[in-house]
Every structure is written in structure tokens, then in C-alpha cells.
Amino acid sequence: MSTLAERATGGDVRAMARLISMAEDRADGVDALMRELYPHTGRAWTIGVTGSPGAGKSTLTDKLIEHFRSEGSTVGVLAVDPSSPYTGGAILADRLRMQRHTDDAGVFMRSLGARGSLGGLSRGTREGVLILDACGYDVVIIETVGVGQSEIDVMRVADTVCVVLVPGLGDDIQAMKAGIMEIGDLFVVNKADRSGADRVVNEVRGVLEFLKGREWVPTVLQTVAENGEGVPELVRLLRLHREHSLKSEAGRERELARLRSKIEDIMLERLSDRVEKLWTVRREELLEAVRERKLDPYAVAEELLSKA
């Protein structure tokens, strides 16, 4: 094994952190490193925590870390915040609420910018899960803001997805009917210390009725992340889902679907690099020719691809 992969799987935090950056940055040679790590993956339990901005995802994650640590499990966290579409910059502040675990060597936390992933999960997140898995973390928690593609993507990396809702966001339930319902293995109504939590629970139950008869029907529960109320029950339900998917056909299918999208992602990324290269040399000239209507876009694409 290369020294970096060896160091990371041997517990060297710097090496782990560096590997995640290399994946994010798409650095040269990172695919070879991922290949070295892959045989070491497949042990971790990956939990996705998704929901609207400010729903309490980080606070809840902080409590989940505490719970898993008290049971002796090691925990890796990947916390994703949006990047500015204009500058690509980001302020990553999820760590703020989990700071007390910084001194715990059994916890690894990493903040990630969504970067240009069109609302989906960034490369750093997708590969970060595998890296932390290979490095031996028992539980890997991914925090993502539930906007657009990212909440669908989270299904493609997480074994168990927990959707966090809060009272007073009436539109949430509407949006859920449109698809979030399909994503959650478990629904949490956080900030249950505020009024209206019961109503949200009932509404979610109403929508979940439609899923009756499935192998796994998600449940709803209330939490107060700030003081940890409901967290033990949340962990119990998360674990129930984990056990279910480890032995059910649905769990197997989900894993296959995940591997399929993994492989397709890799192929698409490479193809897109190739497209980029095909065209760098003559781009100006071809664009000008199309602008003057000497060529058409279809012919140009055809010609470029025929040389690939």
C-alpha cells in the first residue's frame, strides 16, 4: 500500500484528512489511493442527517456522537454546508455545535463545502464516507442541508437516512409529499419544545400511511436536540432500521443501487474530463465557426466525439 493510504488506515488523522482533500480536489492519483482503500470498506454504518437549514441537524449530530461514543463506537462526521455559487467560497460552521468532541480521539469531524455539485453531494462527501469507513470508524454521520439533489444523493451514500423537520414550517410537509417521503428511513420532528410539534408528527404520519405494506415503513418521533430529549429513542429506531436492512432484500437492493450509482459516477466523471480535453485545443476556433454559422453545434460535437 502507498504510505498515505497505509498511514490513514493505521489511524494517522493527518493522512485521513489529506485523503479527503485529495478526493475533494480531484487531485492526481487519488483514484489509485481509493482503490487501495476500497477493500477495507464495508464495515461502517453510515447515517445521513438531512433537513431544512437551521432544523437542528448539527445539534442532533452532536448528541448522536455523544450517544455512540458512550457505547464505545468511534464516529466520523462529514458536515456539508452550501458553497457560494458565485465565488465557490463557503463558511463551514457545523463544527461549532459539535466542538466538545474535538478533544476526543475517537471522533473525526470534517466540514465540506458542497462545491459545484449542483445541489448534490460533493465528491469529497461521497469519497469521504469510504475513506472514513476504511479508516475504521464504526459510525459515519453525514450532515447535509436538504435542498434539491443532495437529499436524494444522501440515500446513495447512507445506509440509514434521518430527515429532520421542525414545527412551523408548513411547506415542509407539502414538499415531503413531493418526494422527501421516499428518502427518509426515519423522520424526526426536532425542536419539540416548541408548539406545533404534535401537528407536524400527525401530518407526517398521514403521509406515511401511503407507504403501508412496504418492507420498511418509516416512523416519526420527536426530539429536543438541545437537551438530548428523544435521542436514545432515535438511536433505537436508527438501529432497528440498520438491522432490518442488513438482513432484508430491500437492504440488498439498496446496496446494489448504491454501487451502481457509484460506478456510474466514476464513469461520468471520467467521460466529462475527456470531453473537456477533447475540446480544449480548438475551442475558440470551433466556437467562432459555429457563431458564424459555418458549422453547427451538432456537427462539431459529432466530430469531436468521433476522435475520442
Partner: peptide
């Protein structure tokens, strides 16, 4: 951030140990 960088914001009251662990992770 506006210059395109990624900022990891750790808030108040960090010990030097925590700052260094954060920088490494």
C-alpha cells in the same frame, strides 16, 4: 469566503489544542 476560500469557523473559546486538532482534521 467572498474571495472563494472555504472557511471553517470554530466560534469562541477554543483552546489551542482544539484549534490544532480542528486544523488537522
Amino acid at each position: 469566503r467572498d474571495a472563494g476560500m472555504e472557511i471553517i469557523y470554530t466560534g469562541l473559546r477554543q483552546t489551542p489544542e482544539q484549534i490544532v486538532t480542528t486544523a488537522i482534521q
